[in-house]
Computed example of a mutant assay.
Amino acid sequence: MLLDFILVIFASGITSFIDSFLFELESDPIEDIFSIKNAVSIILLAAVIVPFIEELIFRFPLKYERNLVFHFFDFLTKNKAKTFWFKHFRIFFYLFAIAFALMHLTNYSNTNSLFYILAPLIVLPQIIAGITLGYVRLKLGFFWGVLQHGLYNLILFSVALLFFNSNQLTKINNIDYSLEINIVEFGLNNPITLETYKSEDRIDSIIGNNTTVKELAEILDSTDTILLKKSKRLNIRFINKTNSKNPETIILDELIKEFK
């Protein structure tokens, strides 16, 4: 497990480089799943349910006596499938690891061609995990693989929940206005609030917690198609002090800088 973490940290550096310098990795699908869960549900899902299901699909069949598909083919081919399995087992082992990794591409909503070209690098952490978990499954047994997978996810998600759930996007405080926007990684099933306070036609303040970029863009009458599709969650606090500039423009400019 320690070796897995060391290798995955290295591989994650490659993924971070792609995300920072080539194109943004859109993780909206998985964020949508976790945004409506509380902390206990997230940990239960990530550290118990998902590891068991994934190990059942991708590691349980690595032992021939548990592989019902090949047992069926073995019956049809009069034991030829069993011979084929053991002769080419290394290939099957790595194919299961690669299939496990490629399945994690569904965590992202990207559809550009470069995303698919770089897919092996994007899921390199999962390829490494697939290989190490496969080794544990073969050497120690199925439930040891589930345990390692669960502990791995428990550590990652616990650290994310405790230390990285809120990241500051913007903090501006001048004589004209103050604006603070924080990105929220997990909604934790908290109530969504987004209030706009006005005096006549002037926006005095906008206060929002656990809202989405899309909802905020709609409130600000944005026509930007990228912002109107973003489900990333935000906490926002805007105070207009002098009305010297259009508040909608101020906030949308900051959002576009981050998400475009």
Rank of each mutant, 00 (worst) to 15 (best):
D4P: 00
F5M: 11
V8W: 10
V8S: 14
F10W: 05
A11P: 07
I14D: 01
F17Q: 02
F17S: 09
D19C: 04
D19R: 08
L22S: 04
F23D: 02
E24M: 08
L25H: 08
L25D: 03
D32P: 01
F34C: 08
K37A: 11
K37W: 12
N38H: 02
V40A: 14
S41G: 13
I43M: 04
L45H: 07
A46D: 04
A46E: 10
A47K: 10
I49V: 12
I49C: 02
F52R: 05
E55D: 13
I57D: 11
F58W: 09
F60D: 07
P61Y: 08
N67G: 00
V69L: 13
F75A: 11
T77K: 05
F84D: 05
F86R: 13
K87H: 08
R90I: 09
I91L: 15
F92P: 06
F96Y: 13
A99V: 01
A99I: 02
F100S: 00
L105M: 09
T106E: 08
T111A: 03
F115S: 05
L118C: 02
L118Y: 02
L118H: 03
A119G: 08
P120Q: 08
P120E: 11
P120D: 10
L124D: 03
I128L: 11
A129W: 06
G130C: 10
T132S: 14
Y135A: 12
R137T: 14
R137A: 12
F143R: 13
G145W: 04
H149L: 04
L151V: 11
N153L: 01
L154N: 12
S158L: 13
V159L: 15
F163R: 01
F163I: 14
F164Q: 03
F164A: 13
S166T: 11
L169N: 04
N173P: 06
N174E: 01
Y177H: 12
I181C: 08
V184D: 05
E185V: 14
F186C: 04
I192S: 06
L194R: 09
L194F: 02
L194M: 08
K198H: 10
D201Q: 14
T212F: 00
D221V: 06
S222H: 08
S222V: 09
I226T: 15
L227P: 00
L228M: 01
S231T: 15
N235F: 06
I236L: 15
I239C: 07
N240S: 08
K241Y: 10
S244T: 12
N246D: 14
E248M: 07
E248K: 15
T249H: 13
L252D: 12
L255F: 11
L255G: 02
F259R: 06
